[in-house]
Each structure stands twice: as C-alpha cells, then as structure tokens.
Nucleic acid binder design. Structure first.
Length: 1051
RNA sequence: GCCCGGAUGGCGGAAUUGGCAGACGCGAGGGAUUCAAAAUCCCUUGUCCGAAAGGGCGUGUGGGUUCAAGUCCCACUCCGGGCACCA
C-alpha cells in the first residue's frame, strides 16, 4: 500500500534516499527527543501539520506517526528534490526507526497567508530573537562590585542601582532522558515573574545551573566504562539546548554545574569552614575552632579528663578538639547499602528500609563515618521558620522532621545492677508526661541500649511471671534471644508487625517519687534513636504501654481522671490528676511543673528538650562526588587541606567495575583504587609530612546546599562570593529577613535539600561569610503536570498519543483501553516533549499554555488538544497588529474609543495585580478579554493600545512581543521597557449597573451613578418598575444597600 | 492513627474583606464565508420546566449563622500529600 523507500538501518547511522520526487517521506520513530539531532544531521524541517490531524493532513495519510521528517533544507512546503540523499547519525539506543513510508502528495496547496502566526513563523521569530538576546547580552545582570559589574549593551543606564530581586529555580539533575513538558513549568513561571519585575524597576538576578554529581552518571559509567564527566556534560548540553529554546531570560555568564572544579573547590572550602568550626552552646552559634583552642590554652575551658591542656600531647589535643567540630568522624550505627556500595543518610532511606535511589535493601550497622552536627542548630532551624514566607505545609513538614518536644529526663535507679563505672545502674528515661510518673508500672529500654548487659540479672526473681521470660530459663538467654531476633528484623517488618513483644531483664528499677520497685523490660517498641532509648511506661495514659501491659500482665494505674463517658483503654486527654500523691487534683500542665520541681529537689530529674533530628551522615563511598578535603596524620587525626590548596580534584579512575558487596562487608570507596592519589605529601604548618587522604565523597546534597551564593559571583577565584554583591543580592541590610526573593521548585525537597541548605547557610552566617540568617526568603512549590496514561486489557501501557476517544470510551488500535491519571513519563508512554511543542506550535505558545493551565502551585493535567487555544490567542493578537497577507502593521495613530480605553486601563490594573501575585492564568484571561475587544474593533488598532498590549504580553511570550515591538519602530528591547501603568481616573465608570435582590435573589438591575449614595441607590431600587411589580405592595421590612455593589430588599 | 491540602459545568479553571457563581480557554452545537474543506469571523452552551416571557434547582453530603454563604461555623464522605511504636 505504501511503497517502502530505500532506507537502511544501521546501529549508528542511516541513509535515506528518496526515489520519487513527488513524495512525502514519513519516518516512524519511537522517540522524538533527539529529533533535532536528526535535523542537524541532514534531515531538516519537521512537518508540523502532520501532528494536527484535523488540519492540513492529506487524506489517506498515515496517522500513526510520532515523528515525521522530510528531506528538504529550505522550506518544508516546497517539493522534494529528485533522488535527494541525506545522511544522519543518531545513537541507536535512543532513536529507533521502525518503518519508513512514502505517500503521494495529494492536492495540497495550503493558501495560508504569508504572515500567519503559525509554527513556522514562530520558529523563525524565536530563533532570531534568541540569537539577538545572546549577542546583546540582554539578560546579563550587573553586580554592584567585583566581577560581572557590566550589564547588557542596551540596558537602562541605572540598572545596577535599581532595587534588586533574586529569583531562583531548584536546579535540575542533568538526566539522560531529556525533558518532557512537565519539567519547565517552574522555570517558565520564574521567567515570567523575572521579566515582569525587570519592567517594573528591578535589577533581577536569574540564572540556571546543574546539580550534576550523583548516582545515575556513576551507574552509567559502571555499565559503559565511560567517565561520568563525559556523560554528564553531554546531558547538560542536551538539556541546555532544550531549555534555551524556551527563551528563558537567564544570565548565562552565571550558569554553574556542581561538577565544575571551580565550583566544587568552594563546596570543599565550605566543608573546611564547617570542619574548622565548633558550636558554642552559650552563645548559640558556631565559632572558629581556633577560638576553642585559645579557650583551652588560656584555661578558660578545661578538658573533661582532669588533665590540663598543657599536660596533653599534641595528638591528644587534636583529638580533643576534633570532638567539638561541626564536621566530625564518628563510629555510630549508619545505613549501609551494599547494593549501592555506600552508606546513606537517614533521609535517603525510605520507610520500607530501602535506598531512596535504586530501591536496594539498607542495613543498620556501626561504621566510622563523617557526620555534620546539624542537631546543634535544631532550635534555630525551627525558630527561624517564622522569618520565612513559605507555605504552612512545608514549614510543618520541617517542624515535624526536627520533631522538637519538651519534657523531662527522669532517673530510675536499679540497686541490683551496676553501670560501667561500678556505680548503681541508673536508667535515664525521657518523657513528655512527667505528671504521670505515679502511674509508671514498669520501665522499658531499647534492645540496643548500652546498659542492657548490666541490667540483665543472673536468674529470674521469684516474682517473675511466665509471660515475661520468653520461655528462657535465665534472663541472659532471654535477652540474647530477643536482641538477636530484633537485629534480624528489617525496618519494614518492624513497622508492619506492631504486636508488642519484649522480655524481662530480671532487674527492678525504683520510681524516685514513691520508691516503688518496677520491672525493667527490653522491647523493640522503644527506639534507641530517640530520647534516651529508655522510657517509663504509664499504661493508664499511653496506648502503646497499655497494649504492652495487657500483653504482659502488668499493673495499670490511671493518673488522670477520664470523663465519665470515656470507654477507651489508655486515656491521653486532659483532666485532674488522681492516684498521684501530692499532684492529685492538678491539671496536666500544673502537675508537670510540680513533678519536675520535685525531681530537681530529689536530684532525680530535670526538664529537657528532645528532637527527632539526628546528625547528618555526610560521607558516601562513591566516585562521582566532591572529595572530602581531609587528610589523616600519623595519629589518625583528621586535618583539613589549606584553602589555598583547594580543590582536591577527583582522580581519574581506570577501574569502574562494580564490587560485589553484602551486608557484612565494609564499604570500599572507589577513590581507594586511585593509585598514587591516596597518600600525599603536604606541609600543614608543621613541616612536610605524608598523609593519607580521606577516600569518601560528599553526598549529592552538598553542591545544592549553597549554589545560590555562587550565582551571585560565579567567577571569583579568591572568595566564595564578593561581600558587597552578596549583601546586595541577599538583602543583607535587613538583619531579620533577607535571602533569595523567590525560590520555586518541587515539594519533594521540602525537608532534605531545604533543611541541609538552611543549616549550611546558618554556619556561614555565624562565621561571617553571609549576611542573612536564612537563604530563601520566599518559597513556592510549583504543581506537577499530570497526564493520562492508557493500559490495555493485559495491563500494558500503550502509546497515549495514539489513543482516540469514542463515545466515552478510549480506544487504541480498535481495542478499548483503560484510562489512568498520573505523572508524565517514559514508562507510562505518555510523555510529551517540549521539542514536539516547539515543532507544532513554537516556544511562546508552549509558555503561554503552561502558564494558562492553572495556578502555579497546583497539579494540572496536560492536554495537547487544548494547546491550540493558546496558539489562537497569539494568532489573534498578531492579526490585530499585523496584516497577515502583507506583513504591514495594522495599527494607526488614531484616538482610542472611550470604552476601549477603559477596558485597556482596567486590564492593565488587573494584569499588574495578577502578575505581582504570580497569578499568570488570570492575567492571561484579562489580556484575552482586551484582545477580544480589539478583534471586534473596526479599523486599525490604536497605537497606544497596541503599545500597552505588547508590553503586557512580553513577560509571557517574549519572542512574539520583541518582534511586534521591533516592527512598531522601537530600537531597544522590550525586556527593559516600562510595564504599562493604569490611569486611576479611567478605572471607574460614571455609571454602574447593580443588581436588585428581593430576599437574596436577583430580580432586577438598575443603572445608577457610580458615586450614588445609599439613599439615592435605595430610592432608585424601589422605583424600579419590575421591583414595584414583584413587591406588589408588600410590606418592606428592611433594605440593605451596599453602595455601588447591590441592593437587597427584605419584604 | 495523626498533621496538612483539596472537591465549582462535558474538561482545565475564575470569583480581594461574605455581596450578580461559572471570567478566560478547551470541547460541543448553530450560522456567515467557501465548489468543498481548512483557516477566519459571529452566535449559543450549568441544569430542569416553558413556544416565549419567565420561573425552579444548582459550588462533595447533612445541618447552622446571616438580609445575603463556593467563601464563616459544626458534623460527615471522598480524593491527594506528608508523618507514623518519636515516649
């Protein structure tokens, strides 16, 4: 049916020969992401019209195509040269040609006007202006000092002295799969806002970088043997190309990648700053480590072990200091992931106990690792949330993550056991309910608790109940068995199985307030990682303790009086204290303070605060990350590399082979395989010595913790950022606020990135390197673009673009398929790429559609069929200003009709308000209304209206705006033109029509002067013939008048 | 289980402080133009009754406050997200 024409398929390249001059060539390709690569290889224009089956498709043309190319270098509409041959190249795994067909060209003479705003014209306009912007440096943003002080060649002279606005997107990881239309949603939003702010008097800093260290590139390297940098840079190039085509107004001089040596040098510098700092609890801030050394030297601070500073060896001194550092090495239980060959932070482990990336199993085991003392900042990270203009949900998530709770430490002495110092063992518990202490009927310590061995009695006491022993004949056996069992359980099993288990240790603890002896258990419902790893159990007031007490036949004493109608088990509500000695009758808060005061007197407790936040595990045993700039001396003490010897460059590796690791093996850092790199001779101030390098790399979060700072001053090589520029862009003159003015990104970074970044920033703030307490003043989480996906009856996804709707059902190749709704992505076969949209509509249409779909923070469904609405708006605006046939301007210096003038100024007012609040969807609606007025207008468009219209659309659709602006005779770019201002006099009408209601229902309308007072409005309403008729003489009880708004008559 | 957020026509969504529900767009229907189509322009489009005029109903469900409720209060249903044996 369709003659196959000469196509050969090769793994790396192909050759296409057209045999007939009158044919369209049609290639069915599986992946259109790299279509431009195909084009640059020789196949030039893609046919946009093929993708709009309702238009311009010759009858009989194949519909089932996802990409169409034809061989022509000039104009897609011209006939094809005879026997034309083109070559192209492409990676076979990315582009797969399934079929090639030819089809006779039918009568197909689109008589479109020469200057219709269609995809081809949009493409020409867009590429031309993008080249122009680049040549002019239009988006170059001037710094106040240091480097990059120059602005664009044709910008306003005062640009550098204007008020600043710093706008950021969460920068992407350069993925190899390219973009789909969901990715740039946030980038378009920030670009529109940045452009609007440039036109309203601000010096705007907006650029883009790449978070380019990370696992995928390293996994790619493992499978191909290619250096991760090669793959990373290729991905960055492709993503940059796709993004550049959107016309984003970024200062490309400031673009960074975290993998640049000139960037990660400063990531390492920040690590050294943190390493060389300690947290001064009294002053609640970080200070340089040298000041701590000085305190020890002067005797203002003494070592714990009784020695004086002078008595200690240099190595011991160094070891002591190291314990105070904000970055420290610690042997602690960590998350070991053999599948990835690395340890992971708590935050990177899923609730199921698997790795966030790759979904490999994760095991808890003690290992020596770098930690960062983020817990020192828990209070400030919590309190300073109040300074931020973030959504409550994000703040709540951070608060929950930090998990601060106020309570008390209470000491339960165990007279029969001794601790490591040979004293009577003392179990310190944490509780938020000290008021319930009289109801404590047993004590539970976590199975991993260090005191467990000491607490384990030699034999079961006489009072031991059979349920408590786990069937063992001695406490030691029972405890060992129980601990073994818990250690074998995965986090998932532990989470799914909430039945209360545990065993008695054989010891009894003494309740400090009533000297009762209560049994001590170990049970896995008490977690070592929270509080003190031990609790006093109050089954009367705690549901978990109630369950355990019921299971193990333990006493239950209520200490709070439940209401009479209470029918549950444990009572956690409020009420007066009972069975509590001197507390009886007190409400909970009063009883808490009374208990704590009493405990302090007894020396058995004190009030305290606990957080869920743990210190940040900072080392990874991976290659593709920043090397930790640390060496170890002969005492195995960590020493930082001097700033002037940074960066510590990643060594090149030859051996990429994966290592087979299991739960019990130790991590093998890949950097350990870099021969000649692992040791180094350095002079760290005490002569040239040989040191062992740290073989770890930093986690992926490191680079993204501080990139806002480098955007400010990306070129400086002697300082992280010029302080004058830093203060200007971060708004550091305001000590309470400041920070990036707008930060837009996905909600998935609500805790990890945003918490780590705030932590680093606060350390830098304490050390005087930044001028604001917080990095990001205002945060918005953009919604996600969702898409429909379709599954057939085998449950397999089918190509969503080929599904047709027929009377309520969805069909794919004649078969009914089921529609699902979710994320856009390759695996669901529902991706739409920006490249598709550039080809079919142009970048401005894509921008406009994405902004029109809905509010910025809301998820929204992608509908390719609706994109045409946004294209039509641009076509109509174009047609109202330009003659489609001749290309001449259809605007004139004529007086604006008064009604149109009012509409114009109301539009300006509304668009300004909507742009300011990032309500781009409604500002587009207002612009559409104005343009609809112009469409109705007979004769040419008045110049003043055209001028304002072009200025107003320019943040949204900068290319078409520049084109119209230029055609209207403006030499300078519209980017720095002033945004129109409404004339207040034109915002109010002389007369208004208001509704008249009877008992809240609109029954009539009256037209009255806009400034009519209450009396005359009421009179006019009551005089309305329709109202008189409907009232029919009924008694009027009340008349509510809202002047200029409405009248409501109650009869 | 706890904490957030949400529910408005066939679809995406609009609606400062309670004050004309459904802006704007998509889709659909009709018309003009055209040999025909595409494109363009115009009209209609929440729903029910009605020839029309006009009227009834209507913002997830059930109550309430108010002259007036999508908006405020109470109870509930469903959907989305986060946390989860955190003492």
């Amino acid at each position: 049916m369709y003659p196959f024409f000469g196509i050969e398929e090769h793994p790396g390249e192909g050759e296409l020969t057209l045999l007939r001059p009158d044919t369209w060539a049609e290639l069915e390709v599986r992946d259109t992401c790299f279509f431009d690569d195909l084009a640059t290889g020789g196949l030039s224009a893609c046919l946009p019209r093929i993708h709009s089956p309702t238009r311009d498709v010759p009858p009989g043309f194949l519909r089932r195509v996802t990409g169409v190319a034809r061989v022509d270098h000039e104009d897609p509409v011209l006939p094809i040269e005879e026997n034309h041959t083109s070559r192209w190249t492409f990676p076979s795994h990315q582009l797969n040609i399934l079929n090639a067909y030819t089809q006779p060209v039918t009568e197909h003479t689109p008589d479109r006007p020469a200057q219709r705003y269609d995809a081809a014209l949009a493409d020409a306009i867009e590429t031309r202006w993008q080249a122009r912007w680049k040549a002019d440096g239009t988006y170059h943003t001037p710094n106040p000092a240091g480097s990059l002080t120059e602005g664009p060649t044709n910008a306003p002279a005062d640009l550098a002295t204007r008020p600043k606005l710093f706008i950021m997107d969460m920068f992407p990881y350069p993925s190899g799969t390219g973009l789909h239309v969901g990715h740039p949603l946030g980038y378009i939003s920030t670009d529109v806002y940045a452009r609007y702010k440039r036109m309203t008097g601000f010096n705007v800093l907006h650029t883009m970088g790449y978070d380019a260290f990370g696992l995928p590139a390293e996994e790619h390297a493992r499978s191909t043997g290619e250096h991760p940098r090669v793959n990373t840079e290729a991905n960055i190039a492709n993503m940059s190309r796709q993004l550049a085509r959107l016309g984003l107004g970024h200062d490309d001089r400031r673009a960074i990648a975290t993998t640049d040596e000139s960037y990660y040098r400063w990531t390492q510098w920040i690590f050294s700053q943190i390493f060389n700092a300690w947290f001064d609890v009294e002053n609640d801030k970080a200070r340089p480590i040298a000041e701590l050394e000085a305190e020890f030297e002067s005797g203002a601070r003494a070592p714990d072990d009784g020695r004086t500073w002078a008595e200690m060896t240099a190595g011991d001194q160094r070891a002591l200091i190291n314990e105070f550092r904000l970055a420290y090495v610690s042997e602690a239980p960590v998350n070991w992931c053999p599948g990835l060959g690395t340890v992971l932070a708590n935050e990177e482990v899923t609730a199921e106990g698997r790795s966030d990336r790759g979904n490999y199993p994760v095991f808890r085991r003690p290992l020596k690792q770098w930690m960062m003392r983020i817990t020192a900042y828990a209070d400030r990270l919590l309190d300073d949330l109040d300074l931020l203009d973030w959504t409550d949900s994000i703040k709540t998530m951070q608060r929950n993550w930090i998990g601060r709770s106020e309570g008390a430490h209470i000491d339960f002495r165990v007279p029969t056991a001794s601790d490591d110092d040979g004293e009577v063992a003392n179990i310190r518990v944490f509780t938020t309910r000290p008021d319930t202490l009289f109801g404590a009927t047993y004590v539970v310590v976590a199975p991993e608790h260090p005191l467990v061995d000491n607490l384990t009695a030699e034999a079961w006491p006489e009072s031991t109940k059979s349920a408590w022993t786990g069937g063992a004949d001695a406490p030691a056996t029972a405890v060992a068995a129980y601990r073994h069992r818990t250690s074998q359980m995965s986090d998932l099993e532990r989470q799914e199985n909430r039945d209360k288990t545990g065993v008695f240790t054989g010891s009894y603890a003494v309740n400090p307030v009533n000297d009762e002896s209560i049994p001590v258990f170990i049970a896995d419902y008490v977690l070592m990682g929270y509080g003190t790893g031990a609790i006093m159990a109050v089954p009367g007031q705690d549901e978990r303790d109630w369950e355990f007490a019921t299971e193990f036949d333990l006493d239950i004493i209520r200490t709070v009086q439940p209401p009479p109608d209470f029918e549950g088990d444990a009572y956690v509500g409020s009420g007066p204290a009972i069975n509590s000695g001197f507390l009886d009758g007190m409400e909970i808060d009063e009883a808490k303070s009374a208990t704590i005061a009493h405990l302090v007197e007894l020396g058995a407790g004190e009030s305290t605060i606990t957080t869920k936040l743990r210190d940040w595990l900072f080392a990874r045993q991976r290659y593709w990350g920043e090397p930790i700039p640390i060496v170890f001396d002969e005492d195995n003490n960590a020493r930082s590399i001097p700033d002037d010897q940074l960066p510590v460059n990643l060594p090149d590796l030859i051996d990429w082979a994966p290592r087979e690791l299991d739960e019990d093996s130790d991590p093998e850092p890949p950097l350990g395989r870099a021969e000649g790199w692992t040791t180094v001779d350095l002079d760290l101030g005490d002569g040239l010595k040989t040191y062992k390098r740290d073989l770890n790399t930093m986690p992926q979060w490191a680079g993204s913790c501080w990139y806002y700072l480098r955007y400010i001053d990306p070129l400086s090589d002697d300082i992280v950022a010029n302080p004058v520029s830093e203060k200007y862009w971060m708004g550091g003159d305001d000590p309470e606020a400041g920070g990036v003015d707008l930060y837009v990104g996905g909600v998935e970074h609500a805790v990890l990135h945003l918490l780590y970044s705030r932590f680093w920033h606060k350390v830098l703030f304490d050390l005087g390197h930044v001028s604001t307490p917080e990095p990001f003043k205002r945060l918005i989480n953009q919604g996600y673009i969702q898409a429909y996906a379709f599954v057939d009856d085998r449950g397999i996804y089918v190509e969503a673009s080929d599904v047709v709707e027929a009377d309520g059902h969805y069909q794919y190749e004649g078969q009914t398929v089921e529609r699902q709704y979710g994320k856009m992505g390759k695996s669901l076969k529902n991706s739409v790429t920006p490249d598709d949209m550039y080809r079919d509509y142009g970048a401005d249409t894509l921008r406009l559609y994405e902004m029109f779909m809905g509010p910025i923070d809301q998820d929204r469904p992608w509908e390719t069929k609706s994109v045409v609405g946004s294209q039509r708006l641009l076509q109509r605006i174009w047609r109202n200003l330009v003659d489609e046939d001749t290309g001449e301007l259809s605007i004139a210096d004529v007086a604006t009709p008064p009604d149109l003038e009012r509409v114009l100024h109301r539009t300006i007012e509304a668009v300004r308000a909507d742009m300011s609040s990032l309500s781009f969807n409604t500002s587009i609606a207002r612009i559409t209304e104005l343009n609809n007025e112009l469409t109705k207008l007979e004769g040419p468009t008045p110049r003043v209206v055209a001028d304002a219209l072009v200025r107003m659309i320019s943040p949204l659709v900068p290319h078409i705006a520049e084109e119209l602006w230029s055609r209207m005779g403006n030499a300078d770019s519209v980017v720095y033109a002033d945004f129109p201002t409404a004339n207040p006099a034109l915002l109010v009408d002389d007369e208004v029509e208001i509704p008249v209601q009877i008992k809240g229902k609109v029954r009539s309308r009256i037209t009255i002067p806009a400034d009519a007072d209450e009396e005359s409005t009421k009179a006019a309403a009551l005089a309305d013939p329709r109202i008189i008729e409907l009232l029919d003489g009924a008694e009027i009880r009340k008349v509510i008048v809202i002047p200029g708004k409405l009248v409501n008559i109650v009869a």
